[in-house]
Computed example of a mutant assay.
Amino acid sequence: MPEQLTNGQYHTVYNLLSLVIAAQLFTSIYLLVVQPRVLPRYRQALVVAAIVCGIAAYHYFRIFDSFRGAFVTDAVGGQGTYTQAAGSAFNEGYRYVDWLLTVPLLLVELVVVLALAKKLQTSLLVRLIPASALMIALGYPGEISGDNLTRNVFGLLSTIPFLYILYVLFVELTRSLDRQPPAVRQTVSRLRILLFATWGVYPIAYLLPLLGLDGADAWVGKQAGYSIADILAKALYGLLIYRIARLKSFADDPAFAEVEGGHDQAVSHEHLDEGQPKAAKVGR
């Protein structure tokens, strides 16, 4: 952690943390409110998505308080340079506690919303949940270490379960998507890419000290990267889970789709996937 931040650096982190709190908190509320918009069998996935965002909002409140306590200024109106407060430090551990809880739950959301066969669902969960928890647990010792060798070792170790998770999501899960509605398959593909892209931000931020980037600018960049990635990987991800639940609800129950106004959308996606003529696609 830098010993001081400029006024601009301080307020960049301050405003980003505030943005994450708002995004996670109100996405959590939204996902709870829209429960009746999907069939009962898919509501568990939305509850898990809401819990993920709620956990993130709570920890960002703690991160926000830790940040405010770690840097202080004597300037009138808070417009001067912010220095590290005596006896205080920014607690990066809050992020890892959050990830340890939410990353496994993100994978639970995806598996549960697909409503796969019980045996397959259990098989996926018993592999993905321990792998994701291990990935986070192995990354933390390197994060808090000032020694590059330690960061290298634990960074490499945490990459192993990360690659295994990608294998399960992009190879094994793909084999299970044939019976899903076409629109669901498309959304799952986007969702997996979102996970890959956002999770990729974390190791980049983790490696900044190893790349020779340090000081206040690097620290602020790391906090910005973590914050934006958390919005995408939790709030946006949760909204995509809601979209999958809606599409599957429409496909399962045409009467429900009619009431919810999703009948035409579900039918159009089915026709496109079946290779309708171009003119039909344009006139959709």
Score class of each variant (00 low, 15 high):
Lys278Leu: 12
Phe250Met: 07
Leu16Phe: 09
Thr122Met: 13
Arg37Tyr: 14
Tyr58Phe: 06
Gly238Tyr: 04
Val171Glu: 08
Gly146Glu: 12
Ile51Gly: 08
Lys278Ala: 15
Asp214Trp: 04
Ile204Trp: 07
Ser28Pro: 00
Thr73Trp: 00
Val76Pro: 15
Ile129Met: 07
Pro209Ala: 05
Ala245Trp: 15
Ala89Leu: 02
Ala266Trp: 11
Gln223Tyr: 06
Gly77Cys: 00
Thr187Asp: 06
Thr187Gln: 11
His11Thr: 08
Ala45Arg: 05
Ile204Gln: 04
Arg68Leu: 14
Leu17Gly: 13
Val111Phe: 01
Tyr167Met: 08
Tyr167Asn: 03
Leu110Thr: 03
Tyr164Thr: 02
Glu172Trp: 04
Thr150Cys: 07
Ala266Phe: 09
Ser123Tyr: 08
Phe196Pro: 11
Asp230Leu: 14
Lys118Glu: 08
Val188Lys: 04
Phe26Thr: 12
Pro209Arg: 13
Pro203Gly: 14
Val34Glu: 11
Ser66Leu: 08
Leu124Arg: 04
Tyr82Thr: 04
Glu92Cys: 06
Ile21Tyr: 02
Ala86Cys: 06
Val33Trp: 09
Ala57Ile: 03
Gly80Pro: 13
Ala255Thr: 15
Ala233Gln: 12
Phe170Gly: 09
Gly139Asp: 11
Val111Arg: 02
Leu149Tyr: 15
Phe170Val: 08
Leu195Pro: 10
Tyr237Ile: 01
Pro40Gly: 00
Ala229Val: 01
Ile21Gly: 02
Ala251Gly: 11
Arg192Ile: 07
Gly146Pro: 02
Leu247Cys: 10
Ala279Ser: 10
Gly261Ile: 05
Ile55Met: 01
Val153Lys: 03
Gly155Phe: 02
Asp273Val: 11
Arg43Asn: 10
Ile244Tyr: 09
Gly78Phe: 02
Leu116Gly: 03
Pro40Ile: 05
Arg37Ala: 04
Val168Tyr: 06
Gly261Asp: 10
Gly8Lys: 10
Leu25Ala: 15
Ala233Glu: 15
Leu39Lys: 00
Ile228Glu: 00
Glu260Phe: 10
Val103Cys: 01
Thr150Ile: 12
Leu232Gln: 05
Asp147Ala: 11
Pro2Thr: 09
Phe26Lys: 04
Ile244Ala: 01
Ile144Phe: 07
Val76Gln: 12
Leu156Gly: 15
Arg185Met: 07
Val220Ser: 06
Phe90Ile: 02
Thr150Arg: 06
Thr174Gln: 13
Lys119Ile: 12
Gly262Ala: 00
Ile136Phe: 05
Leu177Glu: 02
Ile165Trp: 01
Leu120Tyr: 13
Asp74Tyr: 13
Arg284Pro: 00
Ile231His: 03
Glu109Ala: 06
Tyr167Ile: 08
Gly225Glu: 12
Ala218Ser: 08
Ser227Glu: 05
Gly54Gln: 03
Tyr14Thr: 12
